[in-house]
């Protein structure tokens, strides 16, 4: 029956007609952002107000778009900007180049840079697209600076991408629930996500095994051998 065969071909299409609409009337109507959304960066502070950034330039080094420019300097001994010897005295991100990949957040050894969920910010000149420390460093209370041209929505400043760090680097169950580096460091930190690891503890020996275990896990999930 050719007619039914033809209709059968439209099964998926017809089925979709009765589904709820996905298209949103942006910008009047906006979607809720997922919890791991990558938006505009912030530079975090410790609870005592000192900056977390130590000017190590690892973010600039890892940035695939080359949009970060950092210069370090000796902390002034009488009024240190950050703990330790060094602080970032120039920190600039060119948001015309940034692709929000979050590699800077992964690279940061002090969890100084994280990403909020603000994505709607526009500029009228190229110069304005370069955010400096003035715009990036969070307020004294740890909340991001809300700049006049940015469209902040409820929840955009919560759970900035600190989850990167909250996830155990080894993927080991032993570390589940234990925040690395900065459990007590204030803004930009959230609890680690649960259920990140399904490993048996003997497989999870951190020594030499990480890559192998990871690869096995992926292959199991896909029901076959990856290698």
């Amino acid at each position: 029956m050719a007619v039914f065969d033809a209709l059968g071909g439209f099964k998926v299409t017809i089925g979709q007609v009765f589904q709820p609409r996905v298209t949103k009337q942006y910008p009047e109507e906006k979607r809720k952002k997922p919890p791991r959304f990558h938006g505009r960066h912030v530079l975090n502070r410790y609870e005592d107000g000192s900056e977390k950034c130590i000017g190590c330039e690892l973010c600039a080094g890892v940035c695939p778009a080359g949009c970060i420019y950092v210069r370090g300097k000796d902390n002034p001994p009488d009024a240190p900007v950050s703990p330790g010897e060094r602080y970032g005295y120039v920190y600039e991100i060119n948001f015309l180049r940034c692709i929000h990949c979050d590699l800077c957040v992964e690279a940061c050894p002090t969890e100084a840079i994280t990403e909020t969920k603000v994505l709607e910010f526009s500029f009228t000149s190229r110069r304005d697209a370069i955010y400096t420390k003035k715009e990036l460093v969070v307020n004294n209370d740890g909340t991001p600076k809300r700049l006049p041209w940015e469209d902040w929505r409820v929840g955009d400043d919560e759970f900035t991408s600190g989850w990167m760090r909250a996830t155990s680097p080894q993927g080991s169950k032993d570390f589940e629930g234990r925040t690395h580096w900065s459990g007590e460091l204030g803004e930009g930190v959230r609890k680690p996500e649960a259920g990140q690891s399904d490993l048996k503890s003997e497989d999870a020996s951190p020594r030499y095994m990480i890559r192998k275990v990871e690869a096995d896990r992926i292959s199991k999930r896909h029901g076959g051998k990856v290698r």
């Binding site: 330039e57 600039a60 080094g61 210069r71 370090g72 300097k73 000796d74 010897e85 060094r86």
Partner: peptide
């Protein structure tokens, strides 16, 4: 050279 740059720069 102190804190002027990193090797990868």
């Amino acid at each position: 050279y102190r804190f002027k740059a990193r090797p990868w720069d």
